[in-house]
Amino acid sequence: MAKFIVDNKTVEADESITLLRACLENDIYIPNLCWLKGMADAPVSCRLCFVEIEGEEQLTSSCKIKVRDDMVVKTDTPAVRRLQKTAFQLLMSAHEINCKVCPANKKCELQKIARFLKTGLKPKNMNSHLKEISADMPPNPSLDLHVNRCVLCGRCIYTCIQKQGQSQITFAKRGIDTIISFYGAPEVLSATCSECLACVSICPVSAITLT
């Protein structure tokens, strides 16, 4: 067991777990989207879980570091919040903000994080960058993808591999054009996907829905 301090509160946690998990389990909320309990290695793709650790020059993603004895962690310094807000705004600039018609409304992780960071959903001073789905993408017969809701956290891909052994869903393309996509024969997809639906329930923003 490691004993350390987070926001002036003493926390005890097993040394094998990450700082993010230790905080979350002790009711200290750190915004996060991509990490899931049980992951051997966090993808660090959402860039939201920054914390400040005493003695370290730069802010670190808390999902990537293991807890250790006597570390002093702060989760709400101005520097941390600034980075988190920027990361959040960048995410939102590629997000279709239309909460009224979105099934995730009111249980959406993004709304929760916006409230927590005391920032709006619509990023100021940033253009919206929405994507188009190319025509060569065959649809999944049982699931609908909403690429402009997707925040590219990768939870669905991880969950699919956990449940099916191989992923039916993938990141396609690259850089700013990256999207999640199903690809494959409709028979194969409907055989694996129609019953499982693990990706639908794990998605924090309802980017995958039932048809």
Binding site: P138, Q166, S167, Q168, T170, S181, Y183, G184
Partner: peptide
């Protein structure tokens, strides 16, 4: 074409999705 991707996926025992993800990169 998509039949080619499906063929490669089958040969390597991967999902077509996985192959597509790599190829589009």
């Amino acid at each position: 074409p998509s039949p080619a991707l499906a063929m490669v996926a089958e040969y390597l025992g991967m999902t077509a999705s996985d192959v597509y993800g790599v190829a589009t990169f």
